[in-house]
Amino acid sequence: MLKYILKRILAGVISLVVLITIAFFMMHAMPGGPFSPDEQKNVPEVILNRLAESYGLNKPLWDQYIDYWNNLLHGDLGISFKYPGVSVNDKIAYHFPISALVGGIAVVFSLLVGIPLGIVAALNRKKPADYGVLAFATVGISVPTFILAVLLLLLFGEVFRMPIAVFHSEQVLSYVLPVLCLSFHPIAYIARQTRSSMLEALENDYVRTARAKGVSELMVVSKHALKNAMTPVITYLGPLVAGLLTGSFVVESVFSVGGIGKYFVSSVSDRDYTMILGIVVFYGAFVVVCNLISDILLAIIDPRVKLDK
């Protein structure tokens, strides 16, 4: 087990190195830059040059790459280009918890709604409840977040007259819309996945064995079948947690949540080199860790999964 975890962490580190390298060179390969004269038209060229010099952008690319690694290994993600004097570390440390809280609630909510929906559908196969869940799941998977977000705004703002304009992190009501919006797609996916794996599990011989032992229907479903049906959901949990906890550009922009999600996009258009790389490193590491945890969880639930192989 320990050996496996170490191996997976090593593999994760290697993918991070590759990820950073590709991101670094692609970023620099884009035409223009943070202080290119074409973009900063009102600033004299001399100043731009001095700015570039102070950020080390006039050095050869290779040296910049080495410098970045040097800082990174010291735990320093650098100073933001867009927000002078603010380090990327601080930026992430400030904005990530907001995203993580909203995303964390969304993860729990998705599981609490998606799994029961899937079970209800499976137990009522080919009945109205099943068709209802399937219809919802199809809509949930196919409607893009930005449309859903706007529809939710319309519904809650216009119809229910809820205060939606500003996000207050200490107000419970503020979390309703972003959480709903974030969990819509996962709920649909989890419900569908649970339904199909539940149906499959209920067909198994061991379910018949359990019934032949006199196990109650509730226990047959919630113990014998559900545990087996949960394995695909757990596999999906890794990427889901990573995706939701690190925030979403669309959801955070629409509901003005001050999370880290918006920097995924804005840092690129801002040419905020350190911010781009900082977010790549952070997100990459997060995905690696989340996947590792979901794999370990899977091995705990299903003893046939051998981690060392």
Binding site: N204, R208, T209, A212, N228, D302
Partner: peptide, 13 residues
């Protein structure tokens, strides 16, 4: 009751 296939008649988890 004892079933045909002991590979699948016991719950693997």
């Amino acid at each position: 009751m004892v079933f045909q296939d002991p590979m699948t008649s016991l719950n693997p988890l």
